[in-house]
Amino acid sequence: MTYEPALELTALTKRFGDKTAVDDLSLSVPRGSFLGLLGRNGAGKSTTLKMATGLLRPTSGTVRVLGLDMAQDPIAIKRQIGTMPEDMALLDMLTGPQYLRFVGRMYGLEDGVIDGRAAELFEKLDLAPGPKTLIADYSFGMKKKIALCAAILHGPKLLFLDEPFEGIDAVTNRTIKDILLSLQSRGTTLVLTSHILDVVEKLCPLIAIIDEGRLKSYGTLEELQMGGESLESRFVDLVGGTRTGELSWL
């Protein structure tokens, strides 16, 4: 049997006018792994994820997901993946249950299956909106939760999460982590972007560091920490950040 990675990016480049957001990035993510994509703000993490999920077309290079080419089979790929974009991209004039019903039907799930899964997700995530509350009126944390529900409702083989832990409370944070780990234990491949090193360090056995659109480092956490350096020190070394935080006027 030939080895087919869950995600394979080859010489991926994205330019917006004169600005190169992602520059010749190549990466191969094995099936069943949990990859943390680390980088500073504006490093190109979200752009990479958008190309991997078919929201952006690469200027050059290829994206292969679960053995399929994104340029050739975008619909077949989208059926098998789940995505939670950073801004959540929700249809906010629907209520939470209506939205999940809509998304579930788009993936061809039966009403009964959708409702059963939605009820379980709502319970696990402690999501209890009013019966007619529109998503537009949800709090930020509730929106994050409903976006996660929509991304995993159809049981994707590969799940992309763009900054999933941004702006949520500690309890929800813990619940989401548990759900993600349980998905991984059942064979789902996960790709998560974050600029919070702590989260990535605790969750992701596989780490890629991106800076200025280029892949700076890729390997397991142990490989990155070789020489006893902490992930934070290694990260700062790779991306060349400043180490002093004093301000002249304070």
Partner: peptide, 15 residues
């Protein structure tokens, strides 16, 4: 009128 939701629509497996 889809606003942010257009991203959600385009992520669905729809041509």
């Amino acid at each position: 009128m889809d606003g942010h939701g257009v991203k959600g629509l385009f992520l669905l497996p729809l041509g």
